[in-house]
């Protein structure tokens, strides 16, 4: 475990805490994409099937369980909580995520390291994670008043991805035989998806303005 990896994981953890706090404290999920949360649920379920087959470390297992539990909590709130569900931007959150899920799954069937159920689902989760933020970014673009916490949530998620790239570079230089091309390419694609958002986030922060994304 290097410092970049740990920092990346912590950013991921903070992003989820920010989202949980925001929804819980304001009793509102305005500006939050349920589609992105559901895509993350699929990503985590498919990737963390190895919870049943292999033990890596207490840290690893704990983080996996936190990611799974928190994502399902957010989905539950947005769908069923009697106060929170009313605040969901149903009409704006219209990204058709089947157009992400199907191609990612087909790609995982073709491009994988081993043609087994576990490995294909794991690879599928890698591809799907790369694009899972898209419904959220589209929703932010349609939201006129992006509140700080929602903006911070996406910024923290993007930072987590950027730090993972540094982690890969560090590991590549320090560990012999460490390489994972599919993960790297997907991770780089995933980070590129955030660049536009980063630009507007930092600009609004420097100019002390409210964040808004041009349509």
């Amino acid at each position: 475990m290097n410092i970049f990896r740990l920092a990346g994981d912590m950013m991921h953890l903070f992003s989820i805490i920010v989202l949980l706090l925001k929804i819980n404290a304001t009793r509102s999920c305005r500006g939050v994409s349920l589609k992105t949360q559901e895509l993350y649920a699929i990503v985590f379920v498919c990737r963390y099937l190895d919870l049943f087959t292999s033990f890596i470390s207490l840290y690893n297992t704990t983080m996996k369980l936190i990611f799974l539990l928190s994502t399902f909590t957010i989905i539950y709130w947005m769908r069923f909580h009697k106060v929170i569900r009313v605040t969901y931007d149903r009409e704006q959150d219209t990204f058709r995520y089947q157009f992400l899920i199907l191609p990612c799954f087909l790609l995982a069937l073709v491009l994988n390291n081993e043609f087994s159920a576990m490995e294909v689902l794991w690879t599928f989760s890698i591809y799907l994670e790369a694009v899972a933020i898209l419904p959220q970014l589209v929703l932010l673009q349609r939201t006129n008043n992006i509140d700080n916490l929602t903006g911070n949530y996406v910024f923290l998620l993007g930072s987590y991805r950027a730090l993972y790239i540094l982690n890969w570079i560090y590991r590549f230089m320090t560990e012999p035989n460490y390489r994972q091309y599919l993960v790297w390419i997907s991770g780089i694609v995933q980070t590129i998806v955030y660049i536009d958002f980063f630009y507007y986030y930092i600009r609004s922060w420097r100019n002390n303005e409210k964040l808004s994304l041009p349509a």
Binding site: R5, D9, H12, D50, S54, I56, S57, N60, M63, K64, F67, N113, E114, W122, Y164, N167, R171, N177, Y178, R179, Q180, Y181, L182, V183
Partner: peptide, 10 residues
Amino acid sequence: VREKIAKDEL
């Protein structure tokens, strides 16, 4: 040649 996958990442 198969990659050595680092499944220790999250």
